[in-house]
């Protein structure tokens, strides 16, 4: 292969890698954090996801929906409550509907439904129900939040540049004084990680506001990290299965490539080329 070929290949890869990285602009790049789920073998930290779910329930869920998730997702393979302690014994359930922890979480929520005589009712949730949306509709959500629309959090980590790092930095990014030339109106807050640096969401996390079930100290950073970990799982619930399968596929393809190359050399050894 000549030099031109190599140049072309290198340049093509460069453009492919560089293209999605664009879009950074008038805001600060988020602080990188060493997530356990990064890298080709990375996995979620179940404890962190469980704690993060607690933060979501007690803090975020007042305004932010999780509308593409059902309670049962928490108990599926790879989910935070895939294995749970029942009467001191670790249990796992092939069908998340049978998982008592999931059933208990679901039962804490009230779900709108229609009963068998056609009346609108509120009943306790079941594992198969989707997370209820905190507002009746977008207009109500905006009215309750000073005109801003709290985004749905189901896929928020995939829906933002820099993903988890961005969410975590944003949640912790309320400490600084705004620059003098930035006009911060009432009901808005300075946050250097938000595109435009002004955010309508007030700071939400304070040290000790959540009492973690596992006894971890609930600092602001701990809660921001945990809830981001939970949202990362919510955005990519099959990530661990994906990476496991990826490893097998890569090993297989590599082996097949070696065999085919040997076969190719053998075939072509018959002729001059």
């Amino acid at each position: 292969m000549n030099k031109l070929s190599k140049l072309l290949a290198v340049a093509a890869v460069t453009v492919m890698v560089a293209a999605p990285a664009i879009g950074a602009g008038y805001y600060r790049s988020p602080e990188p954090y060493d997530w356990s789920f990064e890298g080709p073998f990375g996995e979620y930290d179940r404890q962190a996801v469980q704690r993060g779910f607690q933060v979501y329930q007690q803090v975020c869920s007042a305004c932010h929906g999780l509308k593409h998730l059902a309670f049962r997702h928490l108990g599926q393979e790879g989910g935070p409550f895939e294995t749970v302690m029942v009467d001191g014994v670790e249990q796992s359930y092939a069908n998340p509907n049978d998982n008592p922890v999931i059933a208990a979480i679901a039962a804490e929520y009230l779900i709108s439904d229609i009963d068998d005589i056609g009346e609108t009712i509120e009943r306790p949730g079941r594992p198969s129900d989707m997370f209820p949306y905190p507002f009746a509709n977008e207009a109500q959500a905006r009215a309750a939040n000073g005109g801003a629309y709290p985004p749905d959090l189901s896929i928020i980590v995939r829906a933002r540049h820099y993903g988890a790092d961005y969410i975590r930095s944003l949640l912790m990014g309320y400490d600084e004084e705004p620059p003098a030339d930035l006009d911060i109106r009432a009901g808005s807050y300075y946050n250097p990680y938000m595109p435009g640096m002004v955010i309508a969401m007030a700071p939400q996390l304070w040290d000790g506001m959540v009492e973690y079930a596992d006894g971890t100290e609930a600092t602001t950073e701990q809660m921001a990290t945990d809830v981001t970990h939970f949202l990362a799982w919510a955005s990519n619930p099959h990530m661990e299965a994906r990476k496991r399968m990826g490893l097998m596929v890569m090993i297989y393809l590599f082996g097949l490539a070696v065999l085919l190359y040997a076969s190719y050399r053998k075939v072509w050894s018959r002729v001059k080329h």
């Binding site: 080709p40 990476k243 990826g246 076969s263």
Partner: peptide, 30 residues
């Protein structure tokens, strides 16, 4: 066949380890 498998290696690398890198984050917003 050999070239296809090498190509599939790159393909699989994206599918399993960077499925979103070629797309745009905003498309995960409805």
């Amino acid at each position: 066949g050999f070239a296809i498998v090498v190509f599939l290696l790159i393909f699989a690398g994206f599918v399993f380890y960077a499925p979103d890198v070629l797309g745009h984050a905003d498309n995960y917003i409805e």
